[in-house]
Structure formats: structure tokens, C-alpha cells
Write a protein that binds this DNA or RNA. Sequence first.
DNA 1: ATTCTTGCAAAAGTTTTGCAGGCAA
DNA 2: TTGCCTGCAAAACTTTTGCAAGAAT
Lengths: 139, 139
Amino acid sequence: MSELNTVNPARYKRSRQRQRILSLLQEVNNHPTAEWIYSYLKPGLNSLSMGTVYRNLRILEEQELVRRMCNGSGVDRFDAKMEPHSHFICRHCGEIEDLDVGPLTGLIREMEVMTGHLIEAQRLDFLGICSKCRTQKWH
Amino acid sequence: MSELNTVNPARYKRSRQRQRILSLLQEVNNHPTAEWIYSYLKPGLNSLSMGTVYRNLRILEEQELVRRMCNGSGVDRFDAKMEPHSHFICRHCGEIEDLDVGPLTGLIREMEVMTGHLIEAQRLDFLGICSKCRTQKWH
DNA sequence: ATTCTTGCAAAAGTTTTGCAGGCAA
DNA sequence: TTGCCTGCAAAACTTTTGCAAGAAT
């Protein structure tokens, strides 16, 4: 299991900064931005810089330990939950919640046959108003 | 039908630039970037500027005549096909193809009951290797 | 006449990169 | 020792915005 949780050691060394970034992403479920990660880790890693955060997020993404999510806001978010799942995004408060929807196997097969493409992954987001926001008056 | 193809006239005037941007998006199916739209229209609209392109894309998006797609590249793409559909994105050549997958009604209901959220829209992308790229050696 | 729109240029905001020094193997 | 990694700062990019002039109603 620990082998799945580290970068390829033949290609990358172990650095404290990268370890902390990965551990943090694996512990939280709030799909943080690079800025949030930086602010969170900075107090315990005094010399940390944004360049390092961004560089490592790219490496972790390339090593398939982290996934990048781009919503419309222009700021990317990151997620270390790698099992296939979907997201619910509240268009009022912006909250992103994981939803356990497995791969849409039937649909994928159907699309593969119809198009001749090889489908390797899916990305499924639901947009709407979350239950908390629904109970308020503005909706 | 033409009423559905224009912005709210009580709120916005008709401008040549905006008309051209919308028409272009309704004619093509290549999910272009703002830069592509600008380059395409510039020859016939000599004074066009990028600021105008971006401003109008926002207005068209707000009027629900155009949808914004953010892939991981940091450059947004735009789509005037407003019927619910999915996308196939080739991770080799980058091509984006429309797939006619309607709303996942059953799944949406299930998720709504389970979470209490109100689901208003879905976004479904398939990622993989397109049939053209599959026939080449690099895969 | 009033209000929306444009082009231009500057600004804003996020992400990337070059470099010299530091750390890991 | 070799090569990856970091911090810093500058650069690169995409997108937004202020403003004065122009167009639409």
C-alpha cells in the first residue's frame, strides 16, 4: 500500500515538502486550491514557497497520486481521492462534495462501440443547490 | 426560435461583435477558445479586440446562450450547443467530440434523495484515446 | 438623450520557470 | 558526487477592467 502512496523513487527523490503536500491532500476532503495548501503548510514548513507547491502538484498529478479539478473560477483544485467518484458542486455556496458513483460501465461500453474511441476515464459533476443552501430563503 | 438565439433586448443592445461571436459559436463544433474566436473573426471585423471577445462571452454565458468548458490546460473553451450532451476528450490529440448522452435521470434522482441536494445540471466527460490516434503506433 | 458597447492599454490573478544554493541518495 | 529539489523573483499567460469615444435605441 505504501508503494502506491509515493512517487516513483527511480525518478524522484523524497522531499519533505512533497510528502507534506501529499499527506495533506490525502487527509482532507475539501478539494483545496494551491493557495490553501500553501497557507496550511507554511506555518510548519517555514521556507515553503508557492513555486514548490505548484511544482509538486504537477509531479503528483503526473504520478497519478493527485487529480486536478478545474471549475469555472480560474483556480484549480486538487484531490487525492483516486477511486472513481463524482462531485456535487453547489452553485450558491461553492461547496464541493464527493458522491460515490462508480464507473458508468454500461454507458462507457456503448459509447466505445458507437465511436471507436478507447474510454479510459470519466468525469462526472452534478451542479445545483446543496441541502444547506436550500433551507435558506434565497432559494 | 430567433428569440432563443438572442440576448435579452431589455438588458443588452444588439452589437455586431456579439452577433458574430454567437453565430460563429453556433456554426462550429470545435469548442473554440477565446483566442481562436478572436483570430477567426478579426479579418472581417478589423477593430475587434480580445477584451470585447471576453466581455461578450461572459454575457452570452450569463444569458445561457453559451457554455464555458474548463479543461486542465488553463484556457477556457466555449460551446453554443445547449442541449444536454457529453464530451469525449482525446488525451493524445486533444480533440473534443460531442456525445449525445441525455441527462442521467435515474442517477440524478437517486443522488437527490440520498443527499437532499437539488441537482440542476450535470457535466459528463469521457477521457481516452480517439479512434484516429488508436490506429497510430504510439498507442 | 440615454445607455450600452467598443478598443485600447493597463491591471489583476494564477501558474510557470531560471537560477544559484541545498539536500537526498 | 550526482542529480533532484527548493526558495526567490521574474516572467508568462489568460482574463478582467477603467476610460473615453462610438453605436444603438
